[in-house]
């Protein structure tokens, strides 16, 4: 099987400081990978490099495109990469306001990606938006409301709908449940699990919350000081951690 995403030796430095370095992995279709580590471990830098939001210093990020097969996205032209960002890729920000247009209705937010790829029938766009709002458990009568009138959990669900409407194959998520209270988190996690399963999505989730990755991720990558220190099956890494840092991380979780 061809990996959906093949990352080879990606590195990013901020001056003399290491953002992330020596990162390589393959992500297969339908796989969900969690990247964990404390703040400053380089996990968000890595995610932004992979998604093309930050230029990498070196390495390859090879994506299996629908039309041309595997292509290094770091060598793609900007229009090509942005096209990918609107179609086959999605990026869910930690703060919904970074990923939404707060001055545009929920329907417009979901419809934007459709219009960006050429949808020009208002009724179709609107019904597709309503369908997606329903999938993320936002009722149809909120379709014309602005996200500013939504709760934090609803905003995050709207952001997910907006991202998934064009049927992406790879979703990048940066702390998708961060900043939400625990009951809202649980609902969002369940929703994400269902969507990942039903749509066969691949995802890369950056989080510091080990409980989130245990529920969502198939496998884990543990980062410390910009380097990957351990990888493996999620429950194996959490239950039988091999590296000293992972052991510390796992043993530092507060028990409820």
């Amino acid at each position: 099987m061809t990996p959906l995403l093949s990352v080879k030796d990606v590195a990013k430095h901020y001056g003399n400081h290491i953002g992330c370095t020596d990162v390589s992995f393959d992500l297969y279709p339908g796989e969900v990978m969690g990247i964990v580590g404390e703040s400053g471990s380089g996990k968000s830098t890595l995610l932004n490099c992979l998604a093309g939001h930050l230029p990498s210093d070196k390495g390859e990020v090879i994506f299996d495109t629908r039309v041309d097969g595997p292509k290094d996205t770091l060598k793609m032209s900007e229009p090509e990469r942005r096209m990918l960002g609107r179609t086959d890729w999605a990026f869910v920000h930690q703060h919904a306001r970074d990923g939404l247009r707060m001055g545009v209705s929920a329907g417009g937010n979901v419809g934007e990606r459709l219009m960006a790829v050429g949808a020009r029938n208002y009724a179709d766009i609107r019904s597709e938006a309503v369908t997606w709002l329903d999938r993320v458990e936002i009722s149809e009568d909120r379709v014309d409301d602005r996200p500013t009138t939504f709760s934090g959990g609803m905003q995050q669900r709207l952001q997910i709908a907006r991202n998934l409407v064009t049927g992406p194959r790879l979703v990048f998520m940066d702390e998708p449940t961060g900043g939400l209270d625990v009951s809202v988190q649980a609902r969002l996690l369940d929703l994400l699990r269902g969507l990942v399963r039903d749509l066969g999505l691949s995802a890369i989730i950056v989080t510091h919350d080990l409980a989130v990755v245990r529920l969502l991720a198939d496998r884990l990558m543990v980062m410390k000081s910009g380097r990957v220190v351990e990888t493996g099956l999620t429950d194996q890494v959490l239950d039988d951690p091999q590296h000293s840092y992972t052991q510390l991380l796992v043993s530092s979780v507060l028990q409820v």
């Binding site: 493996g232 099956l233 429950d235 194996q236 239950d239 039988d240 091999q242």
Partner: peptide, 9 residues
């Protein structure tokens, strides 16, 4: 059991 399940390495 955990080794068989792949939970322990």
């Amino acid at each position: 059991m955990r080794i068989i399940y792949g939970n322990y390495l």
